[in-house]
Design a protein around this nucleic acid. Sequence first.
RNA 1: GGUCGGUUGGCCGAGCGGUUAGGCAGCGGUCUGCAAAACCGUGUACAGCAGUUCAAAUCUGCUACCGACCUCCA
Length: 489
Amino acid sequence: MENKLTIYNTLSRKKELFEPINPPFVGLYVCGPTVYGDAHLGHARPAITFDLLFRYLKFMGYRVRYVRNITDVGHLVNDADEGEDKIAKKAKLEQLEPMEVVQFYSNRYHKNMEQLNTLPPSIEPHASGHIIEQQELIKQIIENGFAYESEGNIYFDVERYNQKYHYGKLSGRKIDELFANTRELSGQQEKRNPFDFALWKKASPEHIMRWPSPWGVGFPGWHLECSCMSQKYLGETFDIHGGGLDLQFPHHECEIAQNVAAQGHEAVKYWMHNNMVTINGQKMGKSLGNFITLDQLFTGDNNVLEQAYSPMTVRFFILQAHYRSPLDFSNEALKAAEKGYERMMAAVSQLNRLKVSNENTVDIAALQENCFEAINDDLNTPILIAHLFEGVRIINSIAAGTEKINAENLDMLKKLFHNFVFDILGLKGEEDSSASNQALGKVIDAMMNIRKTARANKDWATSDSIRDELKNAGIQIKDTKDGYEWSLE
RNA sequence: GGUCGGUUGGCCGAGCGGUUAGGCAGCGGUCUGCAAAACCGUGUACAGCAGUUCAAAUCUGCUACCGACCUCCA
């Protein structure tokens, strides 16, 4: 199949044809979480967006190395000198070893990611496991003259860098505007310029996460880890770097500066940024405290939630918007996504029961082409899903007898749905195969046998009462031509 | 204040110069013992004003409102 994938490159602000640097290999780096709290709906967005990309690239036949980091050191609460490390702060609060905090939240993050059916990355490096490499990178940047030492801290010299290169090319900022608009923060006297950022920070005595270095005991700056680990695992240049839009500046801008300062050229060919999840029109985030964690979403345990939403509902909800558009949370929108998801999955299972005909009234080839066109257009999943719903209509119409399909087209349709729904969009059925659920199935079978007899005797009162009782118990019965189907509401 | 982006029908959300987006909800019909599901049909849109064009949600300008980033945030 022809490779026509275009992706929107933040660097050029345009959609570009995706051409890997070293086909068939593709290097993909995505900024992962800082593990000091539970993942919320906002974290699900980059995870799902880049999971989709990972899946589609693999589907196209590329050999993809997907690196997503775990930030477990260096991410400060604020940029002032007294800023605390996020992990260390949490550790103190909970009286834990910092690495206990890291392990605890990493485990929970991985569980959530698995629930959302995102594939694990190829490599998931920790910042704390790459202190040596980060120090080497700092040395290189100092050697090239783009960083300076000040009272045990190493800062990146943004002004110096900007004389030779362009600091701000990714986010479209100009250094004089930055100068005019950067806030004065306390405790930054040791910097030459307020927008200089830390590569290495001196550890204060009470700081528990600390490593020896040529510049004294300290810890690495936040932006450094991504430059360092992407370079280590994907090479001096690699294909795609992804992350949330809020990381564009300063994080990714600093990453570019560090790479260029160290190696003389940029590392990333395509920069991709997913937009934010909002709630009441505002960004959902830690600082505003308006976030809903994924666990809360899955259990319904949050005041703003009218009900629980399954992981696949959440995934479908996110995929129904384009990744570069903001997506607003609301119960109404989630409920609509839940219904839509159920409709699609019902059609998928209907697909296996379709009967082949000699006639054929449906155009599956056209449908397939539309689907590829959508996904190739900068991962336009809302359009893709719209086309898949056309497929749903076709499936249901065949089942209802208003359309006919021949063997060849049915085969194509099955493949199409399998590829797009399961492999690329990463949706899956949520059937419960537990022992208790199997037992429930048997109980329902028994009751439905009684109902069958009642119906045969036209005893509608008994028949309806069984259906109503089951409905009260949360079990939905649908009569079909050959029998019945049931589902939990 | 600076930079960038947005404002689409009851809700969500695509489209970005001419052709039905799609989902959810609503309404009418078909099927069914009745439901449910499914199928068929169907309505209220493109923030406002001005301009470009044969043609504008789609391009330009202005106005209003909203948001993101500029400090940590996916």
